[in-house]
């Protein structure tokens, strides 16, 4: 088997006295999507932020393409260039147009020419049906369009791994679908992804692997079929039952 894009070994993370993640082990092979599910506060966002080196970890290893990125001597900026992350909200830069948002990193980080970056941006915008908004500022876009633009911005730098943190949770059901369809497209393009979501139906569609987090521990993992249809752990069952009652399965 080839080196996985992401490998996490015995990760531990706490905020002061609060142990948020412990004994987290995860392998994400290339071209696969890993979906993190779990109750609010179970540590999904924290895990994604740790992978993106936005949070220092207490112990364990994070390997990107076999390279230890949890090494304090590593050039954080260099690593982050290989990782894309999209948060729940506050993603886009409000003082820049959509096109400027997308081209900022290609121009400043990858040192592409403005023309080259614009061309790339327009190509992506066209592909994801957002070209007519290229010159708008983010506040003129719907929530769903904003999230799509944020996803486009993060893939414009060709990340090795894309991290999506509940990119749909601030949206109404109609907008959820337009965001999810872009994620589906990326998945079929072969993008390697780790995403936290509350959309179980969607998780079933895109996930190669589903991980159920509970109090900072991956309690159960497997194919969507295994985890979502026939969970073995009582906590997973309980969680899915609550999700089901909330009408999100």
């Amino acid at each position: 088997m080839s080196t996985p894009v992401l490998e996490i070994v015995d990760l531990r993370k706490s905020f002061d006295q609060n142990l948020v993640l412990h004994d987290v082990n995860l392998v994400v092979p290339e071209h696969t999507a890993t979906v993190l599910i779990g109750a609010s506060g179970s540590g999904k966002s924290t895990l994604l932020r740790c992978i993106n080196l936005l949070e220092p970890i207490d112990d364990g290893l994070i390997l990107l393409d076999g390279q230890e990125i949890s090494d304090p001597a590593i050039d954080v900026d260099l690593i982050r260039r290989k990782l894309g992350i999209v948060f729940q909200s506050f993603n886009l830069f409000p003082h820049m147009t959509i096109r400027e948002n997308i081209t900022l990193a290609p121009i400043k980080v990858q040192r592409k020419s403005r023309d080259e970056a614009n061309e790339l941006a327009d190509e992506l915008l066209k592909r994801f049906d957002l070209l007519e908004k290229a010159d708008e500022y983010p506040d003129r876009l719907s929530g769903g369009q904003q999230q799509r633009a944020a996803i486009i911005r993060s893939i414009a730098v060709n990340p090795r791994l894309l991290l999506l943190d509940e990119v749909t949770s601030a949206l109404d059901p109609v907008l959820v679908n337009e965001v999810l369809s872009i994620v589906r497209d990326l998945k079929s393009d072969g993008m390697t992804m780790v995403l936290a979501t509350h959309e179980m139906g969607f998780a079933t569609q895109v996930a190669d692997q589903v991980c159920f987090l509970e109090s900072g521990l991956i309690l159960e993992r497997g194919t969507p079929e295994e985890v979502l249809r026939s969970p073995s752990h009582p906590k997973t069952k309980e969680f899915l039952k609550r999700v089901h009652e909330a009408g999100r399965l």
Binding site: L54, R81, G84, N91, R153
Partner: peptide, 24 residues
């Protein structure tokens, strides 16, 4: 999170200040 978004795109802290934080 504006800072986090900029840093996660690979911008250095100086570039983040210059292009994302200061203008706002």
């Amino acid at each position: 999170s504006q800072r986090a978004a900029a840093r996660s795109l690979g911008l250095t802290s100086r570039q983040t200040m210059r292009y994302v934080v200061l203008p706002q």
